[in-house]
């Protein structure tokens, strides 16, 4: 499945030519075909969760969710303190730019861009009788920050999950790798803002972070945002965990704290778990 990159074409153009060109990608993975009307006739195996198309649409959903969250929060008078308004305007701008980029990448591939969901940040999934999973996230600043942190953490992890999924398109891979650290900077910032308000939380996922309490039905978001960040098993070769104690703590200046080992590596998220968490919001 050969991908012809929108960005490969753009890279050949002068740097000042920023206008995206249409229809440069003929196919964006198997799922692009599955998106055609004939999709129903294709075998079920055609719709996997790991094509470039699935990766980009899942990232687009996440970015759209973040964009909607910040847009609505900024529109609520008094929710975000004046001193932080510029910060969240920057976050909103970045998410908007990411949405634009991912949308153009899909369009350039001739792929279907999914319809924009009507997001509901209460967790009621637009059914008033459903229990509220995320109370006050658009009226209380601390509740807002806690959800913002989880969505940014999820973003860092989801870009990691899909970083090597667009293997046939180096320019798109590069773009995913450049978007990934921007999400990480956002997360570090929101975490810092929460710490400034007295929450026990580091700028990176840490065992010492105070848990964000959610109803059981919302637990999947916590799992998607930070579940597994306590992982201390890393692999250089399959099936053989790296024995860090073999080379840490035995040399000068390598007496590190136990909590640092999982902090030093951000983890990816299972894409199905990420999807289940995203589904809470529409």
């Amino acid at each position: 499945m050969k991908l012809i990159s929108l960005l490969d074409q753009l890279a050949a153009a002068p740097a000042t030519t920023a206008t995206p060109r249409r229809a440069l990608l003929q196919h964006l993975g198997r799922a692009a075909v599955a998106a055609l009307p004939l999709a129903a006739a294709l075998p079920a195996a055609a719709s996997t969760n790991d094509t470039a198309y699935d990766a980009l649409t899942q990232l687009l959903l996440l970015e759209r969710l973040q964009l909607a969250f910040y847009t609505r929060a900024l529109a609520v008078p008094g929710l975000i303190p004046t001193a932080q308004t510029a910060d969240f305007q920057r976050l909103r701008t970045h998410q908007e730019q990411h949405v634009t980029f991912l949308t153009q990448a899909l369009q350039g591939a001739g792929s279907l861009v999914p319809a924009l969901p009507a997001f509901d940040f209460s967790g009621r999934r637009r059914v008033a009788s459903n229990p509220e999973l995320f109370p006050n996230v658009l009226s209380d600043y601390d509740a807002f920050l806690a959800l913002a942190q989880q969505l940014e953490d999820l973003g860092v992890r989801l870009y990691k999950t899909h970083a090597f999924a667009v293997v046939n398109d180096l320019q798109l891979t590069l773009a995913v790798l450049r978007l990934h650290p921007v999400e990480a900077q956002h997360s570090a910032h929101v975490r810092g803002l929460r710490r400034g308000r007295g929450v026990v939380v580091e700028n990176w996922p840490s065992d010492s972070d105070a848990a964000i309490t959610r109803p059981a039905a919302a637990q999947i978001l916590t799992t998607a945002a930070t579940g597994g960040e306590e992982n201390i098993l890393q692999y250089q070769t399959p099936g053989k965990p790296i024995v860090f104690s073999d080379f840490l703590l035995i040399r000068d200046n390598t007496a590190i704290h136990d909590s640092a080992l999982p902090e030093a590596f951000d983890e990816p998220v299972n894409s199905a778990i990420a999807q289940a968490a995203l589904n809470l919001f529409f």
Binding site: P181, A184, Q185, A188, N203, A264, D266
Partner: peptide
Amino acid sequence: LKMSSVHARHAAT
């Protein structure tokens, strides 16, 4: 890749 986002967190912090 797992270290990459940690570097970005360091930079932002």
